[in-house]
Design a protein around this nucleic acid. Structure first.
Length: 576
RNA sequence: GCGCCUGUAGCUCAGUUGGAUAGAGCGUUUGCCUCCGGAGCAAGAGGUCGCAGGUUCGAAUCCUGCCAGGCGCGCCA
């Protein structure tokens, strides 16, 4: 039985008990129960309010025209006996606080240990396929900080969807033709000529990055000066693309990101898909000619204006191959298709959705996830990371200076809908002082350290059978178990909302709950895990921290960060 | 002007889909190392939840109108 089933069954049982209490209470007043009753069950954040709470009394207050607190007391008085619930009490202004018997806690802990790496997985996407298209940066240069949020959030969403049961495909779509690419090829040609000692100038809007100098040197090494007279820009473009893709793959490796499928714009032409969607859109009556151009009637689907598909000079707008690509994705049959865009592309969504609906697809299969823009805060100066302006910080530099875990975690700490300020100084400073990443990883290392210490004394955890879980009676222990039961909800919510940041927040809270427990042990020897005089208690506590370690690891895996067994104490970075 | 997103502690942000006394981190003040790792823990200070109305037992959360910031609004990609 998965955690989800366990919780659903528990909630259902409690809802049933509430209904019974309502019926008994109303009967005592000589009234019939209402046709429908909102007896929503919530998990109170304040432990003094029990394990579950319901506001059914408020809902009833409306029908009965009595004060909610009076009704809550009546419900508590008519609560049916149950082996699940230990106590029920009414609390002003009308809540009903429900406390479970402790056996429920032990069961929750047992579930974590039994399921191990599977704990927290959901069956939400069971039997379904999902495709996540992210990053999709055109290969005009190595990745930099402006790409990081997309790359990291996209990869993490893919991990989360996989944990939710989907079979996931990660896909990168890029443009390998068109003006930008011609410009790139021209820039490489100039760099190549310069490498040969010719006097050549980069075009004003060319690509000035040094990586083209390196690629030009390689080109010269392979071909000598045989291309000096070549006007074949396509050759230079293809050569540049091929080598820049290698750079991008290196960048992605640094972040532990891989793609399953790489798709190009030219493939959309080559495979006849561009023609195909144009023909079908026209057949379905959503295409018309005007001012010498060919238009898509996207206003029919809520777009603010119609969009040009074929310009009056006969060339395609970028929209057409994109429609063709989405047609291809939909045709491949994914149940869920995720497009991750920066919010600067949000105006693009309605026209693409319109085109998809015009082709006759159910557009709800595609979910456009937009993330807000990133600002870099460095040495007290804020810099916007727009495409053109701003200082260029490459992914390689970031990972080299801050480490993969810090970079990934920092980009995942914020809700996608909110602007993200990347505080470089804090991230750097975090090498030796407090930092959310280290804080969370430290909890894991501490657990490993306890097991190591125990082993040095000759003790190991002997499994669930040897662990009397009912010995876990400290409030800190109960709090840890309760925190762990939330994990599945957190994962499922992240998957449902396509929103990774809840995982980082959750792990921080779990780590805080653990550090709190640990610190109790430093003050009070009886609260420590290692109890040579009381092997049963020690086994139970080892079971507890083994479970915490499992949940931490599962969470780290979702975020793509490591689970260190030791924290290397790092010397303060040299202050120049 | 129109559209999307955001406005919560000095700063960066959470807030479990409308619930109980609005929470963390950084910074700040003060305690705690004979210890399973002090990269930690506990406590204090710091709030008109942008403003004004509305909806109801109950609003940071939902509705309306303003104000402020970001991003879009091309036969560019």
């Amino acid at each position: 039985m998965s955690w989800k089933d366990a919780r659903r069954i528990m909630k259902a049982k409690i809802a049933e008990l509430i209904q019974q209490a309502v019926a008994a209470y109303l009967q005592s007043l000589g009234l019939a129960p209402p046709e429908s009753l909102d007896c929503t069950i919530q998990l109170p954040k304040n432990p003094a309010h029990g394990d579950f709470a319901t506001q059914a009394a408020f809902a009833l207050a409306r029908h009965l025209k009595r004060p909610p607190i009076e009704i809550a007391r009546g419900l508590a008085a008519h609560w049916p006996p149950s082996d699940l619930v230990a106590s029920v009490e009414a609390a002003p202004p009308g809540f009903l606080n429900i406390r479970l018997r402790s056996s429920g806690m032990a069961n929750a802990l047992r579930t974590v240990l039994t399921q191990g790496a599977e704990y927290g997985r959901s069956r939400m996407g069971e039997g379904k396929t999902a495709q996540v298209e992210f990053l999709s940066a055109n290969p005009t240069g190595p990745l930099h900080i402006g790409h990081a949020r997309n790359a990291i959030a996209g990869d993490t969403l893919a991990r989360i969807l996989a944990a939710a049961g989907y079979t996931v495909t990660r896909e990168y779509y890029f443009n390998d033709a068109g003006n930008q690419m011609r410009n790139l090829g021209e820039s490489l040609r100039v760099r190549y000529l310069q490498a040969l000692g010719h006097d050549a100038q980069l075009p004003e809007d060319g690509y000035f990055g040094n990586y083209l100098v390196d690629i030009a040197a390689r080109l010269r090494a392979e071909h000598g000066d045989s291309l000096a007279e070549s006007a074949d820009v396509d050759f230079f473009t293809a050569y540049a693309v091929q080598h820049i893709l290698k750079l991008i793959e290196e960048d992605l490796r640094a972040l532990d990101i891989h793609f399953d499928v790489w798709t190009t714009e030219t493939a959309m032409y080559r495979e006849g898909r561009v023609e195909s969607v144009l023909r079908r859109l026209r057949e379905r009556g959503f295409v018309y000619d005007h001012d010498g151009a060919v238009w898509l009637r996207s206003t029919a689907f809520g777009d603010e204006k119609d969009r040009v598909l074929i310009k009056s000079d006969g060339s395609m707008t970028y929209l057409v191959p994109d429609i063709a690509y989405h047609d291809q994705k939909l045709e491949r049959g994914f149940d869920l298709i995720v497009d991750l865009f920066g919010s600067d592309h949000h105006g693009y969504v309605p026209r693409l959705r319109g085109a998809i609906e015009a082709l006759g697809y159910d557009a709800s299969r595609v979910r456009w996830r937009l993330y807000q823009m990133v600002t870099l805060l460095r040495s007290g100066v804020q810099t916007k990371l727009s495409k053109r302006a701003g200082e260029i910080v490459t992914i390689q530099q970031m990972v080299a200076e801050l480490g993969r875990d810090v970079v990934r975690f920092f980009f995942l700490m914020r809700e996608l809908d909110s602007h993200l300020v990347f505080d470089w100084d804090l991230a750097l400073k975090a090498d030796w002082t407090e930092n959310p990443v280290y804080y969370v990883q430290y909890a894991h290392a501490r657990i490993c350290s306890i097991f190591e210490k125990a082993a040095s004394l000759g003790f190991t955890w002997e499994g669930l059978e040897a662990s009397p879980l009912d010995r876990l009676t400290l409030p800190e222990e109960q709090a840890l178990i309760k925190e762990m039961t939330r994990f599945g909800d957190v994962v499922e919510r992240a998957a449902r909302d396509l929103e990774p940041h809840g995982i980082t927040l959750y792990l921080r809270e779990l780590a805080a709950t653990f550090h709190n427990y640990f610190t109790r042990g430093t003050r009070d020897p009886d609260s420590r895990v290692i109890q040579p005089e009381d092997p049963g208690l020690m086994q139970a506590r080892m079971a507890l921290i083994a479970a915490v370690r499992i949940v931490l690891r599962n969470g780290f895996a979702l975020l793509g960060i490591s689970a260190p067994e030791k924290m290397e104490r790092q010397a303060a970075a040299p202050e120049c």
